[in-house]
């Protein structure tokens, strides 16, 4: 039983970690809460459903296409909505409201096209999970954990070693100084949207393979990612630690309280951090202008 909780913690944490990192990559450079990210996450699942189930493409080709389309969706939102708003010097509150509006619009669009019922991209009969150290775990859950580890390592290396990664850190730190150094902040923001959206799409696909999909699947998962980002201090290593804390608290919390309170546990942790350690695990103190 204990081993099962440990594995459940790892699975939950891995998912929160991917979605938290994907959200943070965008937030660090733009400094506003891009809630439409929830639909980009959902789009990964539905694009896979479209290509794999409706168009009959191979599963790997469908997944690749779905990630590319999620990436393009994120970039399209940035190019057509956020960038023009930034040009008009819109505040982060205006951008936040715009993102909520697009979120509702696109989520309804998914409902209109695919319906509100649960869709599945899994094929064949549901099999019993593999027994590892006395815990049952499915192959897709193992893939979720491995993907999360790979994504974290690759992103850390990308930010540390590449010129574009350093430019992203520069824009995140001081956008005006970055521009003065000859860095195009708009280009860097677009790259952030591309990476963040591709990761969100990938996370959506993984969740869909694990527990199927509905048009509203994005927001709840995104909220957990946002909590992980805030508790982690908007830092990749911090987000991983926060995701582990949330996963642990949620999975072990159900020993004592009903599982319907799992999300509430995450928000209690968030409130505790906001009150006593608002900069999170690794972060700097929150900036006044950040929304």
């Amino acid at each position: 039983m204990f081993q099962q909780y440990i594995f459940n913690t790892l699975i939950t944490s891995s998912l929160y970690s991917i979605i938290g990192i994907s959200f943070a990559i965008i937030y660090r450079t733009t400094r506003f809460l891009h809630f439409t990210h929830a639909v980009v996450f959902t789009s990964g699942a539905y694009f896979t459903f479209l290509f794999y189930k409706l168009f009959g493409f191979s599963i790997y080709f469908s997944i690749t296409l779905a990630i590319i389309f999620s990436l393009l969706l994120g970039c399209l939102i940035e190019k057509s909505i956020y960038k023009p708003l930034r040009k008009k010097q819109a505040s982060s509150m205006i951008l936040l409201l715009a993102s909520l509006g697009i979120y509702i619009l696109l989520q309804n669009l998914i409902s209109m096209i695919f319906g509100d019922d649960t869709k599945s991209i899994r094929s064949g009969v549901v099999k019993e999970g593999i027994n590892i150290l006395g815990a049952r775990i499915t192959p897709i859950q193992i893939i979720i954990i491995i993907t999360s580890v790979i994504v974290t390592i690759l992103l850390l290396l990308f930010l540390k070693k590449t010129k574009t990664g350093k430019a992203m850190k520069a824009v995140a730190n001081d956008v005006e100084l970055a521009n003065i150094s000859g860095i195009s902040s708009n280009r860097v923001i677009l790259i952030s949207f591309a990476i963040g959206s591709a990761l969100a799409g990938l996370a959506g696909i993984l969740v869909a393979f694990d527990v199927d999909m509905t048009p509203t699947m994005g927001m709840n998962t995104l909220m957990m990612g946002v909590v992980a980002m805030i508790v982690g201090g908007n830092n990749i290593k911090g987000i991983v630690c926060a995701a582990l804390l949330l996963g642990f608290a949620q999975n072990f919390g159900v020993w004592y309280i009903s599982s319907q309170w799992q999300d509430a546990i995450a928000f209690v942790i968030l409130i505790i951090f906001l009150l006593f350690k608002p900069e999170g695990f690794y972060g700097k103190k929150l900036r006044k202008q950040s929304v």
């Binding site: 010129k163 350093k166 430019a167 850190k169 730190n173 001081d174 100084l177």
Partner: peptide
């Protein structure tokens, strides 16, 4: 720019790297 602004969250080496972006 004004006030000797540097990328205060990054290392000295990163700051110099970004100067030569």
């Amino acid at each position: 720019p004004q006030g000797n602004r540097v990328f205060d969250e990054l290392t000295v080496k990163d700051n110099l790297d970004l100067g030569g972006y």
